[in-house]
Amino acid sequence: MAAPSPAMTAPILSVEHLSMKFGGLVAVSDLSLEAKRGEITAIIGPNGAGKTTVFNCITGFYKPTEGMLTLTRSNGERHLLERMHDFVITRKAKVARTFQNVRLFSGLTVLENLLVAQHNVLMAASGYTFLGLLGLPTYRRAADGAIEKARGWLEKIDLVARADDPAGDLPYGAQRRLEIARAMCSDPELLCLDEPAAGLNPRESAELNQLLLDIKAETGTSILLIEHDMSVVMEISDHVIVLEYGTKISDGTPETVRNDPRVIAAYLGVEDEEVADLIGETKPGVDAGDLAVATLAGDGSGPEAIEAAQKISEEREHIAEEHHPHPHETGKDGGEA
């Protein structure tokens, strides 16, 4: 075949200088990241790090305050996601997503859930309903095709036997799988999964790993996932991005990220005593966590680390003051009022 076109080598999604503010709260600040085509990219980070906000910006549920999100499709089309409506992103840019708390159409059957996902294809085949209403064979063929496609996905997620049951009747793990299959039925090039393993038992999350690897291998869909379950993240992702307080603190292969001291500090925190042991002495006004970060990130010598930690602490206080006026002032205002 021909040499890969520039479009194929370009990252499928590139997020540049993304910021998202909710009033005074900065959920994501100046974040840049890339997801490569045909790879599984994981976004991890502690609770409240801004992972879901990034997702909502990518899928158009939030309009970012700043930044550019470029999606490059395999046919070379480039879409600026921040300028598109959520449903247009799915339709034109071919980005599909799942939700942290499963959002199935619980009153529709499993099969119908997968058919709703093929809405736009079927809509065109039915001549925007008018031709389909007359019972033309084009629509009937398209409808049969849609059912076959749904059957294919049901086989993959092992739910063929329950195709005619309401989706709300399925056990939780099956609902999670069905939501992924439903997203895949919209023929995405980028599949965004928001905590797909949440609430799954170890066996189910192993099955999920297999499903995601199959999707990647068979359809070539790039996957972006948010996950807390490290067994999923470390086993299947090609690339891991770590967020904390709305900024990127690490980016690389699972192996690099796993050994990144900043990640360890962000996830585990560092105990005060350990820090004390490490540095030999502590100074007032230095936050233990900052000290740990500075120590682990720097070359390790004591006094410099403390200085660096002090700087971090000061910066943080500075930021905090900018966003939250001094408590005294507010108190006084309140008293006068």
Partner: peptide, 16 residues
């Protein structure tokens, strides 16, 4: 009917 069940999920599937 999907709209009746979940509007946000509808939008995520490309339904206007």
């Amino acid at each position: 009917e999907a709209l009746r069940e979940d509007e946000i999920a509808c939008r995520s599937l490309g339904i206007n």
